[in-house]
Nucleic acid binder design. Structure first.
Lengths: 223, 223
DNA sequence: ATTCAATTTGTACAACTGTACAAATTATAA
DNA sequence: TTATAATTTGTACAGTTGTACAAATTGAAT
């Protein structure tokens, strides 16, 4: 058994939703992409909203698990600045890069979330909120420990901006390529992760009341 | 003559598009909101795509003009750090806060842009790109002058994150309210502007090779 | 008042939507 | 093989979509 039709349908649904949103993609589009019949969708998922719910249930848990795993590692770092960097990476990396699980995972699913959250679809709103707020809260707490003296408002706003930067980069990578005249590749996820982490490192660190040593310039990978 | 039907239609179209995206809003929805007939839309705009184009043409020019005006003022500031702050405000404020023009302007239009850019609608993609890239480039140049030694890639990525933060905050302000347990109001645009400017100030400034004086903590308004 | 153009309405159209369900097919187990 | 269940297909349905266009209404100028 290579891959069940249900799995194939889920995979193509994520791909299409992440490209064009929830409303613009019809069940027939998904069926056609998967080489199946429309009826198979109602059979396996009952309704379009339920299909979306199944997608979330498939990806949410592994992704947050990976995040918390990396967060656990980060928390063992004693130096606050290095820990801050690691905590940020723990939040960003699983959203950008697919883990071991074969199916699309990471970037494509996150991109879908970004698109749906902007679309404001009622079907999606509820599912989104309670699937990720808990993880967000855990991370904000972890960040707070890395930035002594930071105000709660500052932490929340900056975590909002971090998520916005992350989403927008997944949705509109070509803007980077375009604005740079081709010298920077917006699709380069490794570079994007490093840049997001660096940028939010600076923005979080500036919240600290203890402005002491300059930021360490750790940059793995290229760039 | 208080307001022509055409203007009323445009106004309601922006409102609806900014809430639910392009695909989810039908011409009949817009007509109903404006208390008019479907036919009036095809009469005044010809097609749905053309309606969108008209919306952009209506708002783009005044908004970018305001931005460039504020940018001109900012450029006269000699101190690089203060200038950086002012340049960022010049970019962010007109996107968030309606200027003198009566019609929805500012926030609502920007929110619509955010939603449409995520939706990836082909009708919108082209219009969006060439309407704003030029302004973005001018700002990146201005930012470069405030941050000596910054790499072009760093500047472009951070301007990408700035726009992402801006968009996401307009689209999902309630996440801030929710995550803070109600103590922070995500809809408070003045606070949002200040936070975005502060956060990106830190992220841009960290690009400088001359890491010297600590960041000034200028915060107008509440918070 | 009359003419002519501009606007607004109403309605019709083909295409597409999510969903339902009977029929056909395939897999599973005895 | 046979029977039983699981899956997949095909098709039909009512509702909505963008668009087109004739008819009705309004406006402005003579």
């Amino acid at each position: 058994m290579r891959q069940s039709l249900k799995e194939t349908l889920l995979r193509h649904a994520v791909t299409l939703f992440s490209k064009s949103g929830y409303n613009a993609v019809s069940l027939r589009d998904i069926a056609k992409a998967a080489g199946a019949n429309v009826g198979s969708l109602t059979y396996h998922f009952g309704s379009k909203a339920n299909l979306l719910r199944d997608i979330y249930e498939l990806h949410t848990r592994p992704m947050n698990a990976r995040r918390l795993e990396l967060l656990g590692e980060a928390r063992r770092i004693s130096n606050p600045d290095e820990r801050l960097m690691a905590v940020l990476r723990a939040y960003v990396v699983p959203a950008f890069i697919s883990s071991t699980e074969s199916d699309g995972g990471g970037a494509e699913f996150t991109r879908m979330r970004a698109v749906l959250s902007a679309e404001g679809n009622p079907d999606a709103r509820k599912i989104i909120a309670d699937a990720f707020d808990e993880t967000s809260r855990v991370f904000i707490d972890a960040l707070a420990e890395c930035v002594p003296g930071a105000s709660p408002e500052g932490l929340i706003w900056r975590s909002q901006f971090l998520l916005g930067a992350l989403y927008y980069t997944l949705v509109n990578p070509e803007r980077v390529t375009r604005l740079s005249g081709g010298t920077v590749d917006g699709e380069d996820r490794e570079a994007a992760v490093n840049q997001i982490v660096e940028a939010s490192y600076a923005s979080f660190r500036s919240l600290s009341t203890e402005l002491a040593a300059p930021a360490p310039r750790i940059m793995k990978g290229r760039n």
